[in-house]
Nucleic acid binder design. Structure first.
Lengths: 133, 133
DNA sequence: CTACGAAGTAGAGCCGACTCTAGGTCAAGA
DNA sequence: TCTTGACCTAGAGTCGGCTCTACTTCGTAG
């Protein structure tokens, strides 16, 4: 309905997979890089840039970055040029956490895979015996 | 203090990294394969088997299996032989979820790594300019 | 004795990240 | 005209997984 000039909160929800509740929550929490413009009736109008930023936030959340830390990062970006080293620090720290999380997950995966194959062997051997009878 | 015959809750907490609170919580939630034996004064005495089971539960939790699902699995094990296919189902479903989670995490990692290298390049170029002056 | 530390139970509290409710505005369609 | 549906705000509620509190009971060390 808003055409190429902007997206309604519902459209953004649809495109991002977030709920409209979550979108308002994120805004209140200050993790949107720039203030969302308002259209007639005080309705939110999102730009493609807002959408792009949101998609990055979603990635950060998915990988376990807490909302307050996303806000710290967002604040730096909002403040403009000059604090790139601090932004880099936040990203590198998070990168390291994600790396560890993946390693941990891989360890779990190995155990699970091992158990799965044990059970598969067992279940197959039962089936084979049943067929033989 | 309990020697080779068993471990106190404190010792298990130390060995597993769980808190004593969490250990009691897990027991209450019924995710221990076998009832924990009690020593003098009603104190819990854990065997090495309990410890091994706990370590597996920790892996399942770490990889995001909810406590109720661990209980379902535990219940099957407690029931004894004959339900191996159901146990296998639970494990395979979880395995698939972990697989997806890892793929997601890898996607996030790629984005973060990309941003990190962009910021590193930028910060280095600033440094280089400063040195040149 | 007294005090300490580690254990026990039952149940309340906390935290993060949403999610939902209540009550209202507004525009378009039947 | 009336209803529907998407949106608005402020604030309450939910859920999972612990974590903590309050109070008790032991066994040992000073």
């Amino acid at each position: 309905m808003l055409g190429h000039m902007g997206l309604s909160i519902g459209q953004v929800a649809e495109r991002t997979g977030l709920s409209v509740h979550a979108l308002r929550f994120y805004e209140k929490e200050g993790i949107l890089a720039h203030q969302v413009h308002r259209g007639p009736g005080g309705r939110r109008v999102y730009t493609e840039q807002d959408l792009a930023w949101l998609r990055m936030c979603i990635m950060l959340r998915m990988s376990g970055m807490p909302v307050p830390e996303i806000r710290r990062y967002t604040d730096l970006v909002r403040q403009g040029d000059g604090n790139e080293p601090q932004r880099l620090d936040i990203l590198k720290e998070h990168q390291e956490r994600v790396r560890q999380q993946m390693a941990q997950l891989q360890e779990c995966m190995d155990l699970i895979t091992h158990k799965v194959s044990m059970y598969e062997d067992y279940v197959n051997s039962i089936d084979a015996r049943a067929v033989a009878q």
